[in-house]
């Protein structure tokens, strides 16, 4: 047993961190927010070229032949810097949807949500859409002018799709009516290209885990932000990090981040669905609670648009809703008790 990162895994993590620091530094994040440029095709292709999407494809198919443990490390880094775009769906579509592995295609995913509607991320930016059904993951290739879907009038007519003013500035959302078979609303708007060779159970488990990994990256980043701020912000003549009330907030944040990360790594190593549920549960909690505590440590500054804290909190809220929420995870874990 050696439940620690291998040297290769450490090197991979460092490499991805360096890549993202170069290609998606904070200025670029803020620029994306200001200009509402949520998916940058150039960056997407760069990620593809770096192997972000093809990581787990076999080497003879152009991938890096790596496993889920490596994938969660990469997605953790993406979560740290709030890298936008349907990263999880495109990664899982690599090898199944043309262009996904190379970063030429942007692939979104729709999952039935509460009341038969789904909140679909990046629909207007996507080239293809994955839809989970009981038979498997179905693929719908969107029209070349998919951006038109964002047009409320044509969307409502064709798709029963309604754009939503998303809480997260970097995650555009559409509310989509989902039919009984999990297909999108009234048919039309693009051909169904068939069912992918990807069992829906495995797809959901992996999507859940990769989303949890992104949450962990964000949770770890907000600990750093809070600690850094608590060390430089002075009140009453001393750094606020001197006060135990602030220290304890920060310590609780670290505990949550470490628990979430341990859960994600373990689930990645074992592939166990119960552990994936536990990982999503703890990672969601870590990301949301840490962002909130970070906002608290930042005080008034944390309530401003200018600080990045709200971007972490809002993205964490988006990811909580993705694939497996707390109710589903807790019920699944309870069902496993004997």
């Amino acid at each position: 047993m050696d439940f620690q990162l291998t040297d290769d895994q450490r090197a991979l993590r460092a490499g991805v961190r360096e890549l993202l620091a170069g290609r998606f530094p904070r200025e670029r994040l803020r620029e994306a927010v200001d200009r509402a440029r949520v998916v940058d095709r150039g960056l997407w292709r760069e990620l593809g070229a770096a192997g972000f999407f093809s990581l787990r494809m076999p080497e003879d198919a152009g991938g890096a032949g790596l496993g889920t443990a490596e994938a969660v490390l990469v997605f953790e880094e993406a979560g740290r810097v709030l890298l936008p775009g349907p990263l999880v769906a495109t990664h899982l579509a690599a090898g199944h949807v043309e262009g996904a592995a190379e970063g030429e295609a942007v692939v979104a995913v729709a999952e039935p949500g509460v009341g038969g509607t789904a909140m679909v991320e990046y629909l207007a930016q996507a080239d293809a859409l994955l839809v989970g059904t009981e038979e498997g993951v179905r693929l719908r290739v969107l029209a070349a002018d998919a951006a038109d879907v964002a047009d409320a009038a044509s969307a409502a007519a064709q798709w029963a799709v309604r754009p939503v003013r998303s809480v997260d500035p970097l995650t555009p959302l559409h509310r989509v009516a989902v039919g009984e078979a999990g297909a999108l609303g009234p048919t039309g708007g693009g051909p169904i290209a068939g069912v992918l060779g990807l069992p829906v159970g495995r797809f959901r488990r992996e999507a859940t885990l990769l989303t949890a990994a992104e949450q962990c990256g964000s949770a770890a980043r907000t600990v750093e932000m809070a600690v850094e701020y608590a060390g430089v912000r002075h009140q009453f003549g001393q750094a606020i990090g001197t006060f135990q009330a602030v220290k304890h907030l920060c310590a609780d944040m670290l505990v949550r981040a470490e628990m979430g990360r341990t859960a994600v790594y373990a689930a990645a190593v074992t592939g166990d669905p119960q552990e994936a549920a536990a990982a999503k549960l703890l990672a969601d909690e870590a990301a949301v609670r840490n962002a909130r505590d970070c906002l608290q440590v930042f005080g008034g500054m944390g309530f401003t648009w200018e600080a990045d804290v709200h971007l972490h909190l809002k993205r964490a809220w988006v990811r909580v809703e993705r694939f497996m929420g707390a109710r589903e995870a807790e019920e699944a874990l309870a069902a496993g008790l004997s």
Binding site: M1, F3, Q4, E258, M259, T262, A263, Y265, A266, Q274, E275, A277, A278, A279, L281, L282, A326, R327, A329, E330, E331, A332, L333, A334, A335, G336, L337
Partner: peptide, 20 residues
């Protein structure tokens, strides 16, 4: 049930943390 499910996650991860 959800309370017990959450505890299942907690102890499962504490066991993994021990191994870590």
């Amino acid at each position: 049930r959800r309370r017990l499910g959450r505890l299942a996650a907690e102890f499962s991860v504490l066991w993994r943390l021990t191994q870590w």
